[in-house]
Simulated assay, not measured.
Amino acid sequence: MKLTSLTAAVLLRFSILLLLGVTFLSPTSARADIVTLTANDNGKQVQLNVGDQLTIRLPTISPRFGWRLTQSYPGQLTVTTTNVLPGISSGVPGAPATFEIHFQATGTGGLDLALVSAQPGTGYSTLGGFFHVFVTIDKPGVAKNVNITEYGNHSQVKVNQGDQLQIRLDNTAGSQYTWEVMPIANNVVQLVTPSPTQPAKKAKRKAKAGSDEDITFQFQALNPGKTTLRFLYRNAANNEAPPKRDFELEVEVPEPPR
């Protein structure tokens, strides 16, 4: 009888310790978040961590039509599945169907995530056939490269101290117009000048005059604060001429965690 009571007490104590161990260990286990966006989130900034899942639901005129990405994002966002479903919420009341696309955050960085209606002019939405959000993907202790295109004009972006910020603007090959960076008011970010000693890359075919090409500006986030980066598309042969267009981006570098 004493042996049975002792055995029961030992088993009870072991069970309590085991439960406590599970309680102590469970908060430290990594858990990926699932972030869902609808048409109401058009133009917003989204924060993800590596491993998170992102779902975007947009209205469409029928299950036969959907949306498509304007570009791919290798090493950062991977498309896992796409569906066109009737009756699911897209953020637009009365939409006949919803296009749903699922992503997995696979690497750090910042990017303009843009989608256009698969049938321009026929898509049922209040978005005008265009959806855009800015996505940043973080991983603790890892600096990231943040890439902005002209889709991000007049928007805001948050980057961490040490991050690289790359702005890619549309240009016309052979044109007298060129992009010019306006002076930066403070020491929050700094324009990085490409090193002339960089290894030579494989020569690219020269762009044909009048064709579209990109010009890229690279910055580094130096200090906490806020600043505005502004670019003007000017006639290089006539400084008095008004700029043809401009690009503006508000940049915030938060205080690093202590």
Results as ranks from 00 to 15, higher is better:
Q166V: 05
K144S: 13
P183T: 06
S195Y: 03
D138G: 03
V133E: 03
K204F: 09
A173H: 10
Q164G: 02
P199Y: 01
A203L: 14
F134M: 11
A185K: 08
D170A: 12
P194H: 04
I184T: 07
H154V: 12
P196K: 07
T193I: 04
K158A: 15
P140H: 02
T197N: 08
V189F: 05
K206R: 14
A185R: 06
M182N: 00
G152L: 06
H132N: 10
R205T: 09
K144M: 07
H132D: 07
G141K: 12
D163R: 15
P194I: 06
S155E: 14
V189Y: 06
N187Q: 12
T149R: 03
K201D: 09
A200P: 00
K158V: 15
A143I: 02
H154P: 05
Q190E: 13
R168E: 08
R205H: 04
V188N: 12
N147H: 13
W179Q: 10
Q176M: 08
M182Q: 01
G174Y: 03
A143L: 03
K201I: 10
A185F: 06
H154T: 12
D163G: 14
H132G: 04
V133L: 06
Q198F: 06
I167K: 01
T197F: 10
Q156S: 11
L169P: 00
V142S: 01
A143S: 04
V159F: 04
P196A: 09
Y151P: 05
P199Q: 01
N171T: 08
V189T: 05
Q161S: 11
Y151E: 14
G174L: 03
I167M: 02
T172N: 00
K202G: 15
M182T: 00
Q156V: 05
S195P: 03
P194E: 07
V142Q: 01
H154R: 14
T149Q: 03
L191Q: 12
Y151V: 13
T178F: 02
A173I: 10
S155H: 15
N160V: 13
K139D: 08
H154C: 10
Q166N: 07
F131M: 02
N153W: 11
N171K: 07
Q156T: 10
S155L: 15
R205W: 02
P194G: 08
N186S: 14
G174C: 05
N160I: 13
T149W: 04
E180C: 00
T193C: 00
R168Y: 01
D163P: 15
Y177I: 10
L169T: 00
A200I: 02
D163H: 15
K206Q: 15
Q164L: 06
G152C: 06
K158R: 15
S195G: 04
N147F: 13
Q190C: 05
T149G: 05
V181I: 11
Q164D: 05
P140Q: 04
N145V: 09
S155P: 13
